[in-house]
Each structure stands twice: as C-alpha cells, then as structure tokens.
C-alpha cells in the first residue's frame, strides 16, 4: 500500500483550521462569535488559527461596527477555496488508495 500524503495541505492538518475553512466554503462570510459558538473553541485558539489562515492568504478579514460593537467577518479567498478543494481531492485519493 503506497500512500502519498504530500498532496495534503499542511495548513489543514489542524482540525480547527480545517473546520473554519469548511464553514467559509459554504457561507459567504462568517463572524468571529458565530464561529466560536459553532466550533466550540476558546477565543485564543480560534484567533490564532484564523491568523494562521490569514497568513497563508486563505481567508480575508473584514472589520466593521454593528452599532458600537466591533464585528469581524471572515471570508474564504479564491486561493483558500482552491487550496481547500485540492485538499479534499487529496483526501479522496488517499481514501480510495487505502480501500484497495
């Protein structure tokens, strides 16, 4: 059984980052608080993983105000969407190989 893990994206090795991208693939944008509730992680954990994805240019950040409260929204970039799709394809390939 020869399995090639090199095609998997290192950025998505972390489960939280993988989940963030999954959410942003099917939603136009998502805000910090809703993401936190959904993923059930701490502020710090979410923030550091968002920062990592931002560094890869997989997501873009949009800051705005709702009344006086700051509201941060995240969107998947074209690069991020492509990376995620490639990662999914790689996962699919791996699973197919393992079934053989």
């Amino acid at each position: 059984m020869k399995v090639d893990f090199s095609k998997l994206d290192k950025a998505f090795e972390n489960r939280v980052r993988l989940q963030i991208m999954s959410v942003l693939m099917v939603n136009e944008s998502y805000d910090f608080t809703s993401l936190k509730d959904l993923l059930d992680v701490t502020d710090g954990n979410l923030a550091s993983n968002l920062k990592a994805l931002e560094k890869e240019e997989y997501i873009t950040i949009h800051k705005s105000f709702v009344g006086k409260k700051p509201n941060t929204n995240y969107q998947a970039s074209a690069k991020g969407k492509k990376a995620f799709t490639d990662h999914l394809n790689a996962l699919e390939q791996l699973i197919k190989q393992q079934k053989k």
Partner: peptide, 10 residues
Amino acid sequence: SIRNMMERSS
C-alpha cells in the same frame, strides 16, 4: 468534521 461543519454552519 468537514461535512458536519458545512451542514451546521449553514
């Protein structure tokens, strides 16, 4: 988890 997040987020 990908599937779960895609469904639960939307």
